[in-house]
């Protein structure tokens, strides 16, 4: 459902789409049923001349089961949703596959700084590639990120990865992702961070290993050479860049 609109570009994004789809089916079914019963009752028991309402307390066991039965059904479906939700959550946020590369992400009012490990694949060395508002990653490679902020709260969000994590000054928050699609997509800041919150866009470039190697050799030029993928063609890239 979501992937029709927002491409699914990380290893865990299908799992997140799946839990969303599951909740949609379960709640959608009960929602429609409840609304159906509700409108039917309004129609069926509309006031008619000479017909008095019934006196039903709803406290007798055979009446009350109309409440207790849905009660237990809610419980059962809640449990089902919970089990899947927690499984997905654990896979995304608690367990972490070993890193093949690590990026440092620094948020500040109002820009993102991405520190790429560079050819030696180690951070804090001379060949680190530090750029503002552009994150370059390779497809099919496990990335760890170290997220921090220089001032206020921000939130690192990559919708195509279904990934979101707040950045907190004074702390380094770790997480991971593994891209599965090439293309370029929006990176958002999803925590209000002052008057520039609306102009804190960045782009993520997911490249094949060859393109990525080419970019590493001459970062400035290659950004534009990567063809934008599928529907993500920039429609109206507003004036900032």
């Amino acid at each position: 459902m979501i992937e029709q609109y927002v491409p699914s570009a990380s290893t865990f994004s299908p799992d997140i789409d799946h839990i969303i789809w599951l909740v949609l089916v379960i709640t959608g079914f009960w929602f429609l049923l409840a609304e159906g019963v509700f409108f039917w009752l309004i129609f069926r028991f509309r006031a008619r001349p000479g017909v008095k309402g019934e006196f039903i307390t709803g406290e007798k066991p055979h009446e009350k089961r109309w409440v207790t039965l849905p009660h237990y059904l809610t419980l059962i479906f809640d449990l089902w949703i919970l089990v899947v939700a927690i499984k997905v959550w654990t896979a995304v946020k608690i367990t972490t596959p070993p890193a093949e590369e690590t990026v440092r992400i620094i948020a500040q009012q109002w820009a993102w700084t991405f520190v790429h490990a560079g050819p030696d694949n180690k951070l804090d060395t001379a060949d680190d590639v530090t750029i503002v508002d552009e994150l370059h990653v390779q497809k099919d490679r496990v990335y760890h990120f170290e997220l921090t902020s220089r001032d206020v709260l921000h939130s690192f969000s990559v919708p195509v990865f279904r990934l979101k994590q707040d950045a907190i000054p004074g702390r380094v928050i770790k997480g991971w992702f593994k891209p599965t699609l090439t293309g370029q997509f929006d990176v958002q800041c999803t925590e209000i961070c002052g008057i520039g919150h609306g102009v804190m866009p960045a782009r993520i470039f997911i490249e094949s290993p060859e393109d990525h190697a080419r970019w590493l050799k001459g970062p400035a030029n290659v950004a534009t050479a990567v063809p934008p993928s599928a529907p993500a063609a920039p429609a109206t890239p507003g004036g900032t860049k």
């Binding site: 927002v6 958002q188 890239p237």
Partner: peptide, 19 residues
């Protein structure tokens, strides 16, 4: 569902939000 985030005053800065 299509990814619009909150408290943004002008979505033209976000190409993916201008599809």
């Amino acid at each position: 569902v299509r990814g619009d985030h909150r408290r943004i005053y002008d979505y033209r800065h976000f190409p993916d939000s201008m599809q």
